[in-house]
């Protein structure tokens, strides 16, 4: 197969992340606007996007600050909300094991739901042996990061004039983005089982503290998928096909 250059991979990563950027724009702008409205200083709001760079955790933290929740509880909640990134890291680890710390530090810092979803598809494509798939990963990461900073800044500046913006349903953009990522990968019955179980448990476990229901639901979904794969009769899995390739 062809062997794309570093530059080609980088820009392919940026390009494939574009739809996710569209979905993240309203989210970032609302965060900027809500951050200041929840009582954080503009500098703290911007610093959160620059140094924490974790959309859902930032939203939840801003919400907790507005409610006057204590600092240790906010940090603990951030940790729990971010636990899914450990699953992402475990999934990507075999693909980035050859990289130096110079690569792993920034790629680790820039890990998001969106970049993970785009990049894992690229790494799993076994139809080419590109040496520079990590450049694709870098392109996706930088595109998401740059967009997040820009959107937070716009939200911060627009701040007051955007009051009532939360009633426009803009947070729905993230939901449709994720739907567009999930549906195309539900190609086998075990994945369907996994998704249904994850969704059902996420509702049942929703009342639990610190949003821990999210990680419980995700783990139940993964386990259900594995069980279904073991017991449901089905054609060759994607993994087998890749191994054969």
């Amino acid at each position: 197969m062809s062997n794309p250059s570093r530059r080609t991979e980088f820009w392919a990563g940026v390009r494939d992340t574009f739809p996710l950027i569209v979905g993240a724009i309203p989210f970032g702008v609302i965060f900027g606007a809500l951050g200041v409205n929840s009582g954080l200083s503009p500098a703290t709001t911007m610093s959160m996007s620059l140094f924490v760079f974790a959309g859902s955790a930032q939203f939840i933290a801003a919400g907790l600050v507005a409610q006057g929740i204590s600092l240790p509880f906010i940090i603990l909640t951030t940790f729990v909300v971010n636990l899914r990134h450990a699953l992402y890291g475990a999934t990507l680890a075999p693909h980035v094991r050859h990289l130096s710390q110079k690569w792993l530090l920034p790629l680790g810092f820039w890990l998001t739901d969106e970049t993970f979803a785009v990049v894992v598809a690229r790494y799993n494509r076994s139809d080419d042996s590109s040496l520079y798939k990590h450049w694709y990963h870098l392109g996706s990461s930088i595109a998401m990061y740059g967009n997040w900073q820009l959107c937070t800044l716009i939200g911060l500046i627009a701040g007051q004039s955007l009051q009532g913006i939360e009633n426009l349903g803009l947070d729905f953009a993230m939901i449709v983005t994720f739907i567009g990522l999930i549906v195309p990968v539900v190609k086998t019955r075990p994945i369907l089982v996994s998704v249904i179980v994850a969704g059902a448990v996420s509702i049942l476990a929703y009342p639990l503290e610190n949003k821990i229901g999210l990680i419980i639901a995700a783990l139940c979904g993964v386990i259900a998928g594995v069980i279904a794969e073991t017991y449901l009769p089905q054609p060759k899995t994607v993994l087998d096909q890749e191994r054969a390739a």
Binding site: S56, T91, I182, V195, S202
Partner: peptide, 11 residues
């Protein structure tokens, strides 16, 4: 392999 759809769905 089940991580991406399971986590996104749970969110």
């Amino acid at each position: 392999r089940y991580v991406p759809p399971a986590v996104l769905t749970a969110i």
